[in-house]
């Protein structure tokens, strides 16, 4: 087994073997259009999520930070290189 190069994105698994058989639908499925609601000048979508903060496991809600400036940063993962 040789070492595999690790990149910045977290590796993920997938199924192997035969491709899944496609289910037949009488009525063709329509894909929901994906709309990102995020725009500059518009309200930041509110969310609530588990968090780690100063040694404690907490839950935060974005709207609790109204009245303050917020820098919201998404990143690929802990222990990545950049």
């Amino acid at each position: 087994m040789s070492d595999e190069a690790v990149g910045c994105a977290r590796p993920t698994g997938a199924t192997v073997g035969e491709p899944p058989t496609e289910a037949k639908h009488e009525i063709p499925l329509r894909e929901e259009p994906k709309m990102s609601t995020v725009k500059v000048g518009s309200k930041a979508p509110d969310f609530q999520a588990p968090a780690y903060y100063r040694g404690k496991f907490t839950s935060i809600k974005l709207s609790d930070f109204l009245g303050q400036w917020v820098m919201l940063c998404f990143y690929p993962g802990d222990f990545t290189f950049v």
């Binding site: 995020v38 725009k39 500059v40 000048g41 518009s42 309200k43 930041a44 509110d46 974005l62 709207s63 930070f65 109204l66 009245g67 303050q68 400036w69 917020v70 820098m71 919201l72 940063c73 998404f74 990143y75 690929p76």
Partner: peptide, 12 residues
């Protein structure tokens, strides 16, 4: 990597 600056009114 997404970075958003949100003002005190909750506006991006």
């Amino acid at each position: 990597r997404g970075r958003f600056i949100i003002d005190p009114d909750g506006i991006i």
